[in-house]
């Protein structure tokens, strides 16, 4: 009989913990990321995202539990793990007066060599001039250099800590495209973020972490329920305001009326709200995405938490 060997998951953690004391750290993380998946790791500042990533990279030692990358133990087999991983840290390292091309050659040399064509393509794609000194780079360019370093050796797994911070919108789009291509080429991506729309944009699944604990691993549909916008609508003076219709529209919450202005939050699709406004004369409509902290505060308060996990 032929025995089928099942490939190990790209990332697997069992009760992984790092306790820094006074309730800080990461606690009993059970997580599995399968191959060829873009997994978003979402949480507010200080929730434990970077701690998880450093544990996976073997930079810090767990106080409990285990972490495996492609079946390799992240502590015991950390060298072999890193052969398979491309890493982008949350804070770009400082290379002082080295030029961009020297940084690439230095870190490429530590991996046994540089794929020059790949580097050329990546640098050109992000319009990153490698002849300039690191200390002369803007923060966006430093981030681009870190992206090139993470992707240059075509790793099987990319572990990226808030990869788009400092990038302008055009380069963010370019980065998302690169992520999709990388996934299509067979790689797995684990990226952390505190921007809900970002993970919604590029990820297949999302793990949500708060206060060092994994709250939920959500599918994209779940995210749409979480996603919330603050909306401010201004009506033409003296025209009727469809207050009742707006209040009744699906997804509309916390509505307040004040003169010719209405504020509310919208969860999920905007269609019901727009339908409620169809006969009104709207002079201004502003929609803003609240910070992730606000989303968490509003959504992960006890009743909603029960609702999500049910």
């Amino acid at each position: 009989m032929l025995a089928l060997r099942v490939a190990p998951p790209a990332i697997r953690t069992d009760r992984l913990s790092k306790d820094y004391g006074v309730g800080r750290g990461l606690f009993e993380l059970d997580l599995q990321v399968t191959g060829q998946e873009v997994f978003g790791y979402l949480g507010p500042n200080g929730s434990g995202k970077t701690t998880t990533i450093r544990l996976l990279m073997g930079m810090i030692r767990p106080t409990g539990g285990t972490a495996h990358v492609f079946g390799l133990d992240c502590v015991r087999d950390s060298v072999q793990v890193k052969r398979k991983v491309g890493y982008l840290p949350g804070d770009v390292p400082q290379y002082g007066s080295l030029t961009g091309d020297e940084v690439i050659a230095y870190l490429g040399g530590m991996r046994g060599g540089v794929d020059r064509r790949r580097v050329h393509r990546l640098a050109e794609r992000f319009d990153l001039d490698l002849s300039r000194r690191f200390r002369e780079y803007s923060s966006g360019n430093k981030q681009k250099l870190a992206i090139v370093v993470a992707f240059m050796h075509r790793p099987d797994l990319l572990i990226l800590d808030e990869p788009t911070s400092g990038l302008d919108p055009l380069n963010q789009q370019e980065f998302y495209a690169l992520l999709r291509e990388t996934r299509d080429d067979g790689a797995t991506v684990f990226l952390s973020s505190h921007i809900l729309s970002e993970v919604e944009h590029v990820c297949d699944r999302v793990g949500i972490i708060r206060d060092g604990r994994l709250v939920r691993v959500a599918e994209l549909d779940d995210l749409r329920h979480i996603r919330v916008h603050r909306v401010e609508i201004e009506f033409a003076p003296g025209t009727p305001i469809p207050e009742r219709e707006i209040r009744a529209a699906e997804g509309v919450e916390e509505m307040k009326a004040e003169g010719d202005r209405i504020t509310c939050t919208v969860r999920g699709s905007f269609d019901p709200l727009l339908h409620a406004l169809r006969d009104a004369t709207v002079t201004d409509l502003v929609s803003t995405e609240p910070s992730l902290e606000d989303v968490f505060l509003s959504y992960f308060s006890e009743p909603r938490r029960r609702l999500l996990t049910s």
């Binding site: 230095y106 040399g109 540089v114 020059r116």
Partner: peptide, 19 residues
Amino acid sequence: GPPRYEPSTSPWWRYPVLR
């Protein structure tokens, strides 16, 4: 000058200690 997209060609970076 024009932007450069190539990594450094110096062979020194490849070898431990020498780099």
